[in-house]
Simulated scan of single mutants.
Amino acid sequence: MTDTDDRTGTVPGRFDGGRGAAAWAVLLPPGRYDAERLVHHDTLELTGLDTPAGATDPTGPRPGDPVVVLTEGPLRLVAVGRVARPTAERREDPDDPQSDPVSGAFVVAYTRRAFDEPVPAEGLALDGPVTALSADAYRALLGLLGPPPARRSWLVSLDLPIEAATPAEAVRLFWSYVRDLGPRELPTFVSPSHDELAMQAFVLGAESNQDPEED
């Protein structure tokens, strides 16, 4: 999402007033919030929903429609995006290449994330994993996010002591450990590019004290 979206208060994406929905609220399944928070993803792909993107229902979500992504316990806004076409799809009518694409996946292309600081969305009523929103409800949720934070350069490092016979083997083992352990178990160290003394350790996507003397 751009600064322009925030300033104008308009609803980005395609809006067909005759369809009765300006945007969509998508509720993350249990456990999915942690997965989206720990590793960066360009898109959110959900399966098994009643109204997948590209469905034949003309009132359902269509590519380009704006989306807000929420998580429960309590209800919080964690991201904004747009409905995107699934990477793998088939046509409603295989004999007609111009027919609408259909897929069992609902895909959202993220335009802004708030996984680190979810915003309470109290009072929003959802009627399932995908809920139609009015333009006013969508704008109200965008207003809760406020302007996007400024981006800056960071140094991110991961140091692992590895026993190996050769440097090449040590590198292979390093990537194996990263793949197998990942952000749930490995501490990652982050600091502003020009202030290494401000380094912080992160585990599970949150700041973690790695100094045993301070525990």
Rank of each mutant, 00 (worst) to 15 (best):
R91G: 10
V67N: 09
L173S: 07
I162L: 12
S191V: 08
D57R: 03
V171Q: 14
D100A: 11
A165L: 15
A170C: 00
T4V: 02
F189A: 13
R19C: 00
Y110F: 15
A55K: 05
V130W: 08
P118I: 07
G20A: 00
P61T: 06
E117F: 08
I162T: 04
E45V: 15
A140R: 06
L27M: 12
H194R: 14
E92N: 14
G143S: 11
P61C: 00
G81P: 03
F15D: 08
G54C: 08
S99G: 08
L173E: 13
A198G: 13
A206M: 05
V83E: 03
L181K: 13
Y138Q: 03
R19F: 02
V119W: 09
F202N: 13
Q210R: 10
A132T: 01
A125D: 02
P97E: 12
P30S: 02
P148G: 03
D93H: 13
E45H: 10
P183E: 14
G104S: 06
P101T: 05
T47P: 06
G18K: 03
L145T: 02
T131I: 02
P101L: 04
F202A: 05
T10A: 05
G182L: 04
L158W: 05
L142R: 14
L160N: 07
A105Y: 00
P97R: 04
V178I: 05
D215T: 11
A168C: 00
R76A: 02
G64E: 04
E207F: 01
A23S: 12
L186W: 03
A165N: 10
P129G: 11
V80R: 10
P129I: 04
S153A: 15
